[in-house]
């Protein structure tokens, strides 16, 4: 695990702030192009989910192969409360988050006693079970016919019905989410997690209640996903269970792996790369192989996943930060501190 304390605690807000400003300005450049706005909005939803997931996998060292379930819980709860029960949007989001926390608690308590691969399998199982509920609970969810007519999101008196408005909404949520995650990492909880990650036995020896912290992060990651799902439902106004099946969970996992698990920006970077690569493939592949279609994407991401896990298990974000650091430290002419030169990074532990 990262033993570079200066890097964690003294990280300035400058970088992230600049990034935030850039993101907020982008829509003004692409104002009339809803397609580009939509792409960024989708990245936003995914980023929210993957940031929570990164906390879980990277910092708490646990694997979830069923996170789409929480995404779906948020979506369906919001849909139900706003469309069927005609309540204001914030109630839907709140209740969704509460349900997601409860479900994750119920799942988490027994599951965290299991090790590595059993844990993965258990989360997979829960994902399928919850998916089955979405399918079968027809009176509430509409079953496989889908859920229609979800009203636009209405918060603080504004009704978010255009891509332009939604862009700002989701990206503010994303940055809040990352900021919050950062605070956790820098807090007592975060230190406890790092310690657990380093050695569970040692942590127990100094009195850290492992399961409690793992559980907290699991619930938190569920809430992230649920909020993302609620916003998503209002954006697309039509949802169906197939959006929340096992493959979706695996795609989230791919994003986290690509982005890098030791880094709070990993989720966002992974989501962005995933979406951009997808769109890029859509443009390029037909030109090289005229009769191809979506299958190439599947193969490509499969290969990418394998390659990254073998050769860059820390994901891409760490590499990017190294790169940026090298550039900026060249500018500043400061000697790169001995502490920050090598970083062991974190990876998925048992």
């Amino acid at each position: 695990m990262d033993n570079n304390l200066t890097k964690i605690y003294n990280r300035s807000l400058k970088g992230p702030l600049i990034f935030f400003v850039v993101i907020m300005l982008l829509p003004f450049i692409f104002q009339s192009n809803n397609y580009i706005l939509s792409t960024f909005i989708m990245i936003g939803f995914y980023s929210l989910v993957t940031t929570g997931l990164t906390l879980l996998i990277g910092y708490a060292g646990q694997i979830s192969l069923g996170h789409a379930a929480f995404y779906g819980i948020g979506a369906y709860t919001s849909a139900y409360f706003t469309a069927t029960l005609q309540m204001p949007s914030w109630i839907g989001i709140l209740v969704g988050a509460i349900i997601a926390s409860l479900v994750s608690l119920i799942i988490g308590i027994p599951v965290f006693k299991l090790k590595g691969h059993y844990l993965a399998l258990a989360t997979l199982g829960f994902g399928v079970i919850i998916f089955t509920f979405f399918k079968e609970w027809k009176t509430i969810t509409g079953g496989l016919n889908g859920f229609f007519g979800i009203p636009p999101l209405s918060l603080f008196g504004i009704s978010f019905s255009t891509d332009f408005q939604f862009y700002f909404l989701i990206w503010i949520f994303v940055f809040l989410g990352i900021f919050f995650a950062r605070n956790i990492v820098q807090s007592r909880v975060g230190r406890a997690l790092m310690s657990i990650h380093g050695s569970e036995i040692a942590s127990e020896a100094i009195g850290i209640n492992i399961n409690k912290y793992k559980l907290q992060i699991f619930v938190l990651s569920a809430v992230y996903a649920s909020i993302a799902g609620s916003l998503y439902a209002h954006y697309v106004t039509f949802i169906n269970p197939q959006l929340f099946e096992m493959m979706t969970s695996i795609y989230f996992l791919i994003m986290v792996v690509i982005g890098g698990i030791g880094n709070i920006w990993g989720g966002l970077i992974g989501a962005a790369i995933y979406v951009f690569l997808g769109e890029l493939l859509k443009d390029i592949v037909p030109k090289i192989i005229p009769n191809a279609s979506g299958e190439f994407e599947i193969v490509f991401f499969g290969v990418l996943l394998v390659v990254i896990l073998i050769y860059m298990p820390n994901g891409i974000s760490k590499a990017i930060f190294h790169f940026i650091k090298r550039i900026t430290s060249n500018f500043k002419n400061k000697p790169v501190s001995a502490f920050s030169k090598k970083s062991t990074g974190s990876d998925i532990h048992d």
Binding site: I273, F276, L277, L280
Partner: peptide, 11 residues
């Protein structure tokens, strides 16, 4: 890494 960043900008 440069390649990746390049790809991102290209897209």
């Amino acid at each position: 890494v440069s390649l990746i960043i390049l790809m991102l900008f290209l897209s």
